[in-house]
Design a binder for these strands. Structure first.
Length: 455
RNA sequence: GGAGGAAUACCCAAGUCUGGUUGAAGGGAUCGGUCUUGAAAACCGACAGGUCGGGCAACCGGCGCAGGGGUUCGAAUCCCUUUUCCUCCGCCA
């Protein structure tokens, strides 16, 4: 099987994939908010758009509002015609049984007329529906009241620091150099086999990497999360359900000749698992921790760096995913964020939490914060994980509902990183390296490192 | 990868050949009741969910028999197509 990047293919793959995905996007009618909110309270939706500094989208609200009125009108007249048609067809049935052929034929011509009328009406109906969905797709999820208002990532807000951001007396080497000293990284070879953005981790470096993941897995199992190994490839309908089209283009690797994509995170297959499912209210909350390799094209602002393994095409991740009821999602959000903080603290890595401001928040998200690890080399924090609640937006797109006494409701979905590595490995190395190049192994990792306390 | 078979409601399952009062028999599960000290059993009753539209509401209507399309006045039923599952063969860590 060949993996091909959409962007780079010159054989028509792009042209084949793009319209297909867009079609799917539109036809499945995935939207982030309930159209009833626009019918009943346009201002909430508009205020939300303003808060996110997307004023160019304001007109969409009124457009949807008006199209919706037209749509409902045409749906009502269509439904009436269909109702009449159903009635007459049943009558024809009983006339045929009684062998009253002439009477039946008379009625048939009436149904034929109705069908002619319906053809045009249905075109109008379908087009209106499509137009509404396209516009609805661009209207962002309503953000939480607590989200700080700001234009872009420069206005994100630090919530809290955990651990002292120490700067040791010696100069902490660049992570690639730390790895070089223990013969832990070979990028020359990976360049030959796979190109930039890949790596060979070797020896103790590879072992710490795996140890951290195993520890992350057990850490979450101890928090009563169910460990899951999901599929590492998913179909396009799942992909378009869990991310926007731009994200998809910039992130996902497509398998050539198949309707399959390599996951960019296990969240994709984990949320996809529940697509079109109705979950019994008694099973909630569903708390899962999944492992997967993650593949990302990283097309866009940053791209792939030359040295090091900070931003790469392939990494591994232990993730947490929670599906819960509306009233519980904020509790889970805070709990999940704290778990990641606790995890990094147990590895002697100072961290801080940084809340995403309104303008930097992805359209699907209600609230989100990054966990950032301290880099004693750069003397600043860098992102190692991200915790988000998507409200019911993701569930709405994918049809994930639960049945309770109150009726059927869309679930609230959340996800958070426990550990993504090699990035997590970098954080670990920089904070545990000694002047002589040796590396301290914290207590929690020793069982996974054959008992060693130092490399 | 090849060759067959299947998909009907919470579960099992009839209906498909031969299109029409079939939005779908029957059974189980579940819920309510009778009987009982209590329970079981038996008997009686309820039980298609979902989604979209209309209505203050009671309620009315559209869609809906794996998904999508077609034929027809009319489709669970006929045709095409996609997916999934099962059996057999092949291949393989």
């Amino acid at each position: 099987m060949t993996v091909k990047k959409i962007r780079e293919s010159k054989d028509g793959t792009v042209i084949m994939i793009t319209p297909y995905a867009v079609l799917f996007f539109v036809e499945r009618g995935k939207k982030m908010i309930d159209i009833k909110l626009i019918r009943e309270n346009k201002e909430i939706v508009k205020d939300n758009i303003k808060k996110k500094f997307q004023d160019d989208k304001l007109s969409l609200v009124d457009e949807v509002y008006n199209l919706d009125i037209k749509y409902r009108e045409s749906k009502t007249s269509g439904d009436n015609l269909r109702s009449e048609k159903n009635k007459i067809s049943t009558e024809i049935g009983s006339l045929m049984r009684d062998k009253k052929i002439d009477d039946a034929n008379l009625l048939k011509s009436r149904v034929e007329e109705i069908n002619k009328e319906l053809i045009n009406l249905e075109i109008v109906e379908t087009n209106l529906e499509k137009e509404i969905k396209e516009k609805m797709m661009q209207i962002p999820q309503i953000i939480d009241k607590s989200v700080p208002i700001g234009k872009d990532d420069t206005e994100n807000v630090e919530i809290e620091k955990f651990g002292e951001p120490n700067v040791p007396k010696f100069e902490v080497p660049y992570h690639a150099d730390i790895l070089a000293r223990i013969n832990g990284l070979d990028k020359e070879s990976s360049g030959r086999t796979s190109g930039t953005g890949f790596y060979y981790l070797m020896g103790d470096a590879a072992r710490i990497h795996s140890a951290m993941l195993s520890y992350a897995r057990d850490f979450m199992i101890d928090k009563d999360f169910t460990y899951v190994i999901p599929p590492f490839m998913i179909r396009s309908d799942v992909v378009t359900g869990v991310m926007s089209f731009t994200e998809m283009e910039n992130m996902m690797y497509k398998i050539e000749g198949e309707d399959l994509y390599l996951v960019g995170t296990s969240e994709h297959s984990m949320i996809g698992k529940f697509k079109d499912q109705i979950i019994d209210g008694g099973e909630l909350p569903i708390t899962l921790t999944s492992y997967s390799p993650c593949f990302r094209k990283e097309v866009g602002a940053h791209g792939i760096e030359e040295r090091g393994i900070y931003r790469v095409h392939q990494f591994e991740k232990q993730e947490m995913v929670v599906l819960c009821k509306e009233e519980d999602h904020m509790d889970w959000y805070h709990k999940m964020l704290n778990y990641t903080v606790e995890f990094f603290r147990s590895l002697d890595v100072p961290v801080r939490t940084l809340e995403c401001c309104s303008g930097d928040l992805a359209d699907l998200k209600v609230k989100s914060a990054d966990v950032e690890a301290w880099s004693p080399r750069q003397q600043k924090y860098f992102e190692v994980g991200s915790c988000s609640t998507l409200g019911d937006a993701q569930a709405r797109r994918l049809g994930i509902r639960s049945k309770t006494e109150a009726g059927t409701k869309y679930l609230y979905t959340l996800n958070n990183t426990v550990l993504a590595t090699p990035r997590g490995l970098i954080a670990f190395l920089e904070n545990n390296v000694n002047e002589d190049g040796s590396i301290n192994i914290p207590k929690v990792l020793r069982p996974y490192m054959g008992g060693k306390d130092l490399i």
